[in-house]
């Protein structure tokens, strides 16, 4: 294997990883604060993609306007789910929470089919980010480079939000010491709704950014990504954003190297890594101790 292909396999891994990170970040944030593992997060991703696509069509084909408007629509969906459904099952056993979010996966898959049709939709290219650039003699899509840049930017933004702002302090307090936060006057239910909606927005933005990346919109596109996001969240340690970021890098690189060298076992490798982490270090790279 020569240097050029090594660089390209790495680049492919990075863009895959950053792409999963965009989805996993919201999932991890929601789990970290609310303690809910949200299967419907993949649906938010899917809805984000479809809504951004429609917004783009309605508003004269401007990708950036679609990216802005689409996810905001999905936020409203997230708000309804948290406020009128999830909030009532926090006190119940874990399976009810998981199954509730799973029911929403089925619901949204079907709704997307009704609204946008069961077939795939091709996506428009993004002005300025289409085409490929020559890197060491081979071509690499500009848009994928863009994703590689956006991923760390999102991570940086989240880090600043959580570590440096007043909101972040409250979020951190509420995720570790729920009663304590309530005692010092934090309106925990409202905070939960806020975090859930924000997490929803992150997932939807991931979906909106995915439109040009994967090129096709299909109902059920959320189900594939949610499992990858789970893997990443588990490897990094459930609830840890730092862990999810690194986990996404690891999984992205593992799958691009796996595809290159062990194409038959690329999926197998991912899950064996996930199981190994759960068995030997269930709190993941950066999670709180179990």
């Amino acid at each position: 294997m020569n240097l050029e292909s090594l660089v390209h396999v790495c680049l492919a891994g990075l863009s895959t990883g950053m792409f999963i990170w965009l989805v996993a970040s919201g999932l991890t944030l929601i789990f970290g604060v609310l303690g809910v593992l949200n299967f419907a997060h993949g649906s938010f991703y899917m809805l984000g993609a479809y809504c951004a696509f429609t917004a783009l069509k309605l508003m004269g084909g401007n990708f950036w306007l679609g990216l802005l408007v689409g996810p905001l629509v999905v936020c409203a969906v997230g708000f309804v789910i948290e406020r009128f459904f999830l909030r009532h099952v926090y006190g119940l056993e874990l399976p009810y929470q998981l199954l509730l979010t799973f029911a929403f996966v089925l619901l949204f898959d079907n709704l997307v089919k009704i609204i946008w049709g069961a077939g795939s939709i091709g996506s428009p290219s993004v002005p300025g980010l289409s085409g490929s650039v020559n890197i060491l003699g081979r071509f690499f899509p500009v848009y994928n480079l863009f994703i590689i840049v956006v991923g760390p930017l999102v991570a940086l933004g989240l880090w600043a939000l959580i570590e440096k702002t007043w909101y972040g302090r409250i979020i951190r307090a509420a995720s570790t010491e729920r009663e304590m936060a309530a005692a010092i006057g934090v309106r925990v239910p409202a905070l939960f709704t806020g975090v859930f909606v924000f997490g929803t927005w992150l997932g939807a933005v991931g979906g909106a950014l995915a439109v040009p990346y994967i090129g096709l919109l299909t109902p059920g596109m959320g189900e594939a990504i949610i499992i990858e996001a789970f893997v990443v969240a588990v490897i990094g340690g459930l609830g840890s954003l730092k862990g999810a970021f690194l986990g996404a890098l690891v999984i992205g690189l593992l799958s691009s190297f796996g595809t290159r060298f062990l194409p038959a076992f690329d999926m197998f490798l991912t899950f064996i890594l996930m199981a190994a982490v759960l068995l030997w270090r269930p709190q993941g790279f950066f999670g709180k101790a179990v």
């Binding site: 499992i227 999926m267 899950f271 064996i272 996930m274 269930p282 179990v290």
Partner: peptide, 20 residues
């Protein structure tokens, strides 16, 4: 949740073997 995730991982290993 850790049990659920472990069974998911092992189950998908079996799936990937059958698939590949």
């Amino acid at each position: 949740i850790y049990f659920a995730m472990l069974t998911l991982a092992f189950g998908m290993m079996v799936f990937s073997l059958i698939w590949n």
